[in-house]
Amino acid sequence: MFEVLVYVYENYWQGDACPELHQLSRKLTAVGFDAEEIQAALVWLNGLNIAAQNTQIDLLETAPADDARATAKLPKGFQPQSEGSLRVYSVTEQQHLGAQALGFVSFLESAGVLPPHMREIVIDRAMAAPGEPLALDDLKIIVLMVYWSFGEEPDALVLDELCDDADFRVAH
């Protein structure tokens, strides 16, 4: 499934250029991907599309969390995350994601490149991915796909961290 997602990211890096799912399926089949991998990736991408459409980025970025106007515009029952809040992961999330993936999500959050609304989509899509614990390289692909779904490109240093193979790094 992740090979298909990487192909989609590389070939349709502008999310709006990506064809509809049934047409994408035909294109992926023509490229030579396995039917089961394509189906799994399309189901996963559909979930990503739904999550991205239901998130209202503009409301979170246009005003501070304590601004009453921004809070009034938020969907009913949705509260912005305060600066002092802490995300607690369920036992199921901890088991499925594993220590490396959770540590990487924490790193991205503390670096200020993974806002709370995107973090929740990353966690949701990671929970929908196969593998327990989830491989760190697979989580990096998920983070890239979440950025892609919002039509955003990560900062160059973040992109380097997401695409860099740590096995070939040389310690100084």
Rank of each mutant, 00 (worst) to 15 (best):
residue 2 F to E: 07
residue 4 V to D: 01
residue 4 V to F: 05
residue 8 V to G: 03
residue 8 V to I: 15
residue 9 Y to D: 13
residue 10 E to I: 03
residue 10 E to V: 03
residue 11 N to T: 07
residue 12 Y to R: 06
residue 14 Q to R: 15
residue 15 G to L: 01
residue 15 G to F: 10
residue 17 A to S: 08
residue 18 C to V: 12
residue 19 P to I: 14
residue 21 L to A: 10
residue 21 L to N: 02
residue 24 L to M: 09
residue 25 S to Q: 15
residue 25 S to W: 05
residue 27 K to H: 13
residue 27 K to W: 05
residue 28 L to C: 01
residue 31 V to P: 01
residue 32 G to R: 08
residue 35 A to W: 05
residue 35 A to M: 05
residue 35 A to P: 13
residue 36 E to S: 10
residue 37 E to Y: 08
residue 37 E to K: 15
residue 37 E to L: 14
residue 39 Q to M: 09
residue 40 A to L: 13
residue 40 A to H: 09
residue 41 A to E: 00
residue 42 L to H: 04
residue 44 W to H: 12
residue 46 N to A: 09
residue 47 G to P: 04
residue 48 L to P: 03
residue 49 N to T: 01
residue 49 N to K: 08
residue 49 N to A: 05
residue 50 I to R: 04
residue 51 A to C: 07
residue 52 A to P: 04
residue 56 Q to E: 14
residue 57 I to G: 06
residue 59 L to M: 11
residue 59 L to D: 04
residue 60 L to D: 04
residue 61 E to V: 14
residue 63 A to P: 00
residue 63 A to Q: 09
residue 64 P to F: 06
residue 64 P to C: 09
residue 65 A to T: 11
residue 65 A to V: 14
residue 65 A to M: 10
residue 66 D to R: 10
residue 66 D to S: 12
residue 67 D to H: 15
residue 67 D to I: 05
residue 68 A to G: 03
residue 68 A to S: 11
residue 71 T to W: 02
residue 71 T to L: 07
residue 72 A to T: 04
residue 72 A to V: 03
residue 76 K to Y: 12
residue 76 K to F: 14
residue 78 F to E: 12
residue 80 P to G: 04
residue 84 G to I: 09
residue 84 G to S: 13
residue 87 R to S: 10
residue 88 V to R: 11
residue 88 V to S: 09
residue 89 Y to L: 15
residue 89 Y to M: 14
residue 90 S to D: 00
residue 93 E to L: 02
residue 94 Q to R: 14
residue 95 Q to S: 15
residue 96 H to F: 04
residue 96 H to K: 15
residue 97 L to N: 01
residue 98 G to F: 10
residue 98 G to C: 08
residue 98 G to Q: 07
residue 101 A to W: 00
residue 102 L to N: 11
residue 104 F to Y: 09
residue 104 F to P: 01
residue 106 S to D: 12
residue 106 S to V: 00
residue 107 F to E: 08
residue 107 F to K: 10
residue 109 E to H: 12
residue 111 A to E: 15
residue 111 A to G: 07
residue 112 G to C: 13
residue 113 V to L: 01
residue 114 L to H: 04
residue 115 P to Q: 08
residue 116 P to Q: 00
residue 119 R to Y: 02
residue 120 E to H: 11
residue 123 I to F: 01
residue 123 I to H: 00
residue 126 A to K: 03
residue 126 A to R: 04
residue 127 M to Y: 05
residue 128 A to Q: 15
residue 130 P to C: 03
residue 130 P to K: 12
residue 130 P to M: 02
residue 131 G to F: 00
residue 132 E to A: 11
residue 134 L to T: 04
residue 134 L to P: 03
residue 134 L to R: 08
residue 143 V to E: 08
residue 144 L to T: 05
residue 146 V to E: 07
residue 146 V to G: 06
residue 147 Y to M: 06
residue 148 W to C: 03
residue 148 W to Y: 04
residue 150 F to P: 07
residue 151 G to L: 12
residue 152 E to T: 03
residue 152 E to V: 06
residue 153 E to G: 13
residue 153 E to Q: 13
residue 155 D to N: 12
residue 157 L to T: 10
residue 160 D to F: 11
residue 160 D to T: 12
residue 160 D to M: 11
residue 163 C to Q: 15
residue 163 C to H: 05
residue 163 C to V: 13
residue 164 D to G: 05
residue 165 D to C: 03
residue 166 A to P: 13
residue 166 A to W: 07
residue 166 A to Q: 10
residue 169 R to Y: 06
residue 172 H to S: 08
residue 172 H to Q: 05
residue 172 H to D: 11
